[in-house]
């Protein structure tokens, strides 16, 4: 159990560091403009971010409702 906890912790840490380090490497090759990804191509990625947020929120609510229905079924 403890081993599993340790392993999952290190996995999360690895994934997080990849997400943090890789964009930092990209940034070194680009112009001084900040936050290039979200300001590129007419800021279209902001729209992508907004849509992703909406769907993430709706799915989180669906998961909550699903859990509730499962509880009812088991009663």
């Amino acid at each position: 159990m403890n081993n599993l906890k340790k392993r999952s912790f290190s996995l999360v840490f690895t994934i997080l560091s990849i997400f943090l380090i890789v964009p930092a490497c990209w940034a070194q090759n680009s112009t001084p403009e900040m936050a290039t990804l979200f300001r590129s191509n007419g800021k279209i990625y902001v729209v992508v971010l907004v849509l992703a947020t909406i769907f993430a929120g709706l799915f989180i609510f669906l998961i909550y409702l699903d859990k509730k229905i499962k509880n009812l079924e088991n009663k």
Partner: peptide
């Protein structure tokens, strides 16, 4: 300034 983010009108405002 707005650029393509004006499309958020279809997603943010309807919320």
């Amino acid at each position: 300034i707005l650029n393509e983010t004006i499309r958020n009108l279809y997603y943010h405002v309807p919320m």
